[in-house]
Design a protein around this nucleic acid. Structure first.
Lengths: 158, 158
DNA sequence: GCTGAAACTGAATAGTT
DNA sequence: AACTATTCAGTTTCAGC
């Protein structure tokens, strides 16, 4: 993928905000006709810059009012062990995020759950899949101030 | 909003995965014709179950390869102070998430940045807006195993 | 690489069961 | 509450610049 020019960046900004925006309206927003805009969007998709389009859904309406972060520390750090845990977490839909971090602990996990009982169940399920002792600290979210995947697009002047 | 039936749930599952799925194809997937599906989608949008549609974009392609979590603890916990910090974080596009948590610290912040220099700059910017002493711990993500906003849809049998 | 127009596909509306 | 038919809007493709 070559450089993203000013129009590519406008497209990425618009589609991050409004994923279902018709290409005709997108074209109007960026100041071109539909053909080149369609071609640019297809190019951004093919190049993996745009990785997908997704509806966002209200967690409370879906019966998942509880948001929890779990810090996980493993007593042993073999690559095989990490692979095993990764497979478990990737396939667990209640786990929305999982990151390997540097610092005080190993993994930071974010999960959306229906209730505390489900939290206990999920944690037990994860820990039991790990063949070495592991330590965990959990944090319950009391207020969600911001949650997004939208990346800022630095639009160059011009 | 009344209960979500089996078809509503199928719609939510499909649109979370494929946000630009045409309504005709969505209708085919859920086994109805387009009119009732369109009506259901509009109803889910109006009720705030579907909160939006968004393209997802590759952070590395956007020049933000650095993912950092910051734990923030404030020495004083007035509502006014929280408001001030919240306003700052909500308007800062490099901050993707911010949650008020219970436990060892107050805020958990997630940011996507271009480099460590930007991290130092952002942290300084945030701390300087807070009129009381604050303590922070940061964690740099070494590997992103999973990141999503997709909520599991418990589809009842039938 | 963009424009504009023609042909096609999907969306919206109204009327029917 | 869902289906069908019609009309309108959006997408795609292609000739020309």
């Amino acid at each position: 993928m070559p450089e993203l020019d000013r129009i590519d960046r406008k497209i990425l900004d618009a589609l991050q905000r409004q994923g279902r925006l018709p290409l005709t309206e997108l074209a109007h927003e960026v100041g071109l006709s539909t053909s080149p805009v369609t071609e640019r969007v297809r190019r951004l998709e093919r190049a993996g810059v745009i990785t997908g389009y997704h509806a966002r859904v209200d967690p409370v309406a879906m019966g998942r009012p509880l948001l929890v972060f779990v810090e996980l520390t493993l007593s042993s750090k073999s690559g095989e062990l990490f692979e095993k845990l990764r497979a478990e977490l990737v396939h667990e839909p209640r786990v929305l995020e999982c990151h390997l971090v540097s610092g005080r602990f190993d993994y930071l996990i974010k999960a959306r759950l229906s209730a505390m009982s489900e939290y206990r169940e999920l944690l037990a399920q994860i820990l039991q899949k790990i063949p070495v002792p592991a330590q965990s600290n959990s944090y319950v979210v009391m207020e969600e101030i911001k949650e997004s995947l939208m990346l800022p697009v630095d639009v160059p002047r011009g």
